[in-house]
Design a protein around this nucleic acid. Structure first.
Lengths: 349, 349
DNA sequence: GTTAGCACTCTATCATGTTGAGTGCTAACA
DNA sequence: TGTTAGCACTCAACATGATAGAGTGCTAAC
C-alpha cells in the first residue's frame, strides 16, 4: 500500500493531536479538526490502512489510535519542517540574557544550560562537558606545598586544568623543583598522551637523576589529567522530574527506571557519545522508543545534538521526553542553545 | 496519663511492626508477636490510651494504628538503644575494602560513600563535601599559560586547590611572574579571608608597581577560592529512587517533590548545614516529618551526622527515608561511614 | 486488672449494570 | 470509484450494591 498525501495529512493530524492530549485520537476528532473536509467514516477507512501499514495502533478495540515508533519515525524523517518559531526564540533569548550576566565558569554555564533546556521544553535535559579530542599537554607546574608534598598542576589544550597533590620520599629543594619544572616542560609540552611513550619516559627518568620517583608520580598525574576516559565524562542534568508531567511515564516502575538513569549518569554516556563521530544533519540525532541505546529509555524519545567549541572541544546536549514529544520545538531549542554556547565561548575565551 | 513500661513496650512493638510491613498494625498482631502475654482486648485498651496521648493514630475507624511524628520522636529519643549489630558491620566492611582499593580523589570517595550509604540502607543518601572553617591561605602560584593569560593556583589549608585562568592587558615576563609570586606569597600566606583587608590589598598593589591589574585579578581568584559560600557547597547524592520502595512515598506527587529536591540539591544545603555548629550526641540529628527544615520532606524522616576530618574540614552526611525508617540501622550505618571517612583520610594525607 | 464476646464500622473486593466513545461493515449516493 | 450515513458491536470507565474480613469499642464476667 502506498502512502499518499492524504494519508500523510491524517497521520500528521493524529500525531499532533496525540502530542497535545496524550489520549488516543479517534476518527471524529480528525474529521473535525483537520483542514481536509472529510467525514469520520472516510477517516476511519484511512486509519484502518495506516494501521495496516504499522504506523498507528489501537490500544484496544473501540479506542482511538496512537502512533507507533514507526509512525513517529516517518513523521520525524519526512514531515517535520524546521520552521523558525519567533515566539520560542524570543522566550529563550530572555533567559539567555540573564544567563550571560551570571556566567562564571564552564561548569556553571553548562548547569545553567541544562536548566534552560529543561524549563523551556518541560522535558528532561542532559549535557556533557566537552571531550578533548586533541589532548596536547600545554604546561606543567610543580610546586612544593609542604616538606614532602608536591603539587602538580597540569594544563592541557583548551585550558583544562588538573591538580594533584602527592607525597614524595625525598625532600626537594626549591632549586630541584625549578629544574624539574624545566625538564618536564621542555620534554613534554605539546605532546599528546599517545606520544608520551616508554622511550620518552625512560629518557626523562634518566635525566632526572635522583628524582625518578617524582617524575614517575608527575607522569601519573599527567596521565590522569589527559585521559579521555568515558567513565570520567562530566554530565550535567536537569528536570528529570519533568517526566512526571507525562502520565504514560509516571507509573512508579517506569519513572524509577528513567530517573535512576539520570541520577547515576553512567548510562547517559551511551546516549551522549553514541554517534559522536558521525555527522548527521547538524549532528542532531533522534532516538524513538526502542531505537535508543539505553534500554531503560525504551518508552521515551531522546534527541541529542553535538556542539563544538573549536579547539577540539566537543560535547553533546540532549533531551529526554515521552515519545509524543514536540520534536519540532525540541530540535529548534537545541539549535538555539548550541548557538548560544557558541557565542558565549567565542566571547569569553 | 503516664507512659508506663508496658505502654512503651506496646508502642515499641507497633513501631517495629509498622517499620516492616508499612501497614497499620492491629491489637491482635501485637498480642501475638510481642513478648508480653496479653490478649488483644487488653492491648486495645492500652492502644486507646496511646492514641489519646497522641503517639499513634488510626488512619480510619476499624483500621490498625500507625505511629505519629510524636510517637516516632519518643521512640527515637527514649527507646532506641544503639546496639552494635555484628551482621551490619560485617556487610559494610566488605564494601569498604572494595572502596579503599579504588579510592582516588576526595570527590570520588564522597560519591562512593553516598552510594554505599544508599545501597546499605535502601534509603536516599546525601553527603556534603567538607566546608572550611579556617580558611587559611597556604600557597599561591602564578604561571603564564599564554601571552596574555595567567594561571593562578591557590592552595588553602586542608590542601584544597582552586585554579583560575584570567586574561591580562600587559604582557608579563617570566621575571615579572617570579617576583609577583614572591610578593603574593610573602604577604598573604597564612592569612584568612577576614585578615585580607583593604589595608593589605592597598599595600600589595603599591608594591606591585605597574602590575596592579594582575594583583587585583589574583585577589579575586583568592576570594573565589576560599569563600565559604553556601551556594557553593558541593553535595553528592545517591539512591534517590529508593523512595519508590516505600508505597507511602511513591505516589507521583510526593515522589516528584522529594526527587526534585535531590536533583536540584540547593535545598539539601538547609538540611546539611542546619545544626552544623551545635553538638548533639556525636553530631547526629534526627528530623521526623514536620520537624524538617525542608518542607518537601514533611512525609519523610531525615537523619544527618557531621563528620570532621581535622584541619577544620567539616561536612555532613545524611539519609532520607520514610518516617518508618529503621532509625537504629541508619544511625549505626552513619557512624560506621564516619569512622571510615576518618581512617581513610588519616591514612591518605 | 484482664479477658471473652459481641455489635459495629469501615475498607477492599468482586460481580453487575450502564454509559459513551469509537470502531468496522454495509448499503446508498454522487 | 470514492464518499458518506447508519447501525450493530466492542470495550474501558464508572457507578452500584453485596460480601467478607480486619479491627475497634464497649460491656460484663472472671
Amino acid at each position: 500500500m502506498e502512502l499518499d498525501a492524504r494519508k500523510k495529512k491524517i497521520l500528521n493530524a493524529i500525531i499532533r493531536n496525540y502530542q497535545e492530549t496524550g489520549e488516543p485520537v479517534g476518527s471524529r476528532t480528525i474529521s473535525k479538526y483537520s483542514d481536509l473536509q472529510l467525514s469520520s467514516a472516510t477517516i476511519r477507512n484511512e486509519m484502518s490502512d495506516l494501521e495496516e501499514m504499522g504506523l498507528i495502533v489501537q490500544p484496544h478495540t473501540s479506542a482511538g489510535r496512537i502512533p507507533t515508533d514507526k509512525g513517529y519515525r516517518l513523521y520525524v524523517d519526512q514531515m517535520l519542517e524546521t520552521t523558525d518559531r519567533e515566539a520560542g526564540r524570543q522566550e529563550l533569548a530572555e533567559t539567555s540574557d540573564f544567563l550571560i550576566e551570571r556566567m562564571d565558569r564552564m561548569e556553571r554555564v553548562l548547569k545553567q544550560m541544562a536548566k534552560v533546556l529543561a524549563t523551556n521544553t518541560n522535558y528532561a535535559s542532559m549535557i556533557s562537558a566537552p571531550r578533548y579530542n586533541r589532548n596536547k599537554l600545554k604546561f606543567i607546574q610543580l610546586s612544593r606545598v609542604e616538606k614532602h608534598k608536591i603539587l602538580a598542576v597540569v594544563v592541557v589544550e583548551g585550558n583544562l586544568i588538573k591538580n594533584s597533590i602527592f607525597e614524595v620520599e625525598e625532600e626537594l629543594s626549591e632549586d630541584d623543583i625549578l629544574s624539574l619544572n624545566l625538564l618536564l616542560n621542555t620534554n613534554l609540552n605539546g605532546l599528546t598522551i599517545e606520544e608520551i611513550n616508554l622511550g620518552i619516559i625512560t629518557k626523562l627518568k634518566e635525566q632526572a637523576g635522583s628524582h625518578t620517583e617524582v617524575v614517575g608520580k608527575v607522569l601519573d598525574a599527567v596521565a590522569e589529567a589527559i585521559r579521555t576516559d568515558d567513565e570520567e565524562l562530566q554530565i550535567y542534568t536537569s528536570g528529570a522530574t519533568n517526566i512526571f508531567r507525562y502520565p504514560e511515564l509516571s507509573d512508579s516502575g517506569k519513572a524509577k527506571e528513567i530517573i535512576q538513569v539520570f541520577e547515576e549518569k553512567q548510562q547517559l554516556t551511551n546516549l551522549l557519545t553514541d554517534k559522536l563521530g558521525e555527522e548527521g544533519q547538524q549532528g542532531i540525532q533522534v532516538y524513538i522508543g526502542n531505537e535508543t541505546p539505553v534500554q531503560s529509555m525504551k518508552d521515551c524519545s531522546v534527541v541529542t545534538a553535538t556542539y563544538d567549541l573549536g579547539d577540539g572541544l566537543q560535547g553533546t546536549i540532549g533531551i529526554v521526553g515521552p515519545k509524543r514529544m514536540d520534536y519540532e520545538k525540541v530540535v529548534s531549542t537545541l539549535q538555539k542553545v548550541m548557538g548560544q554556547l557558541d557565542t558565549m565561548f567565542k566571547k569569553e575565551e
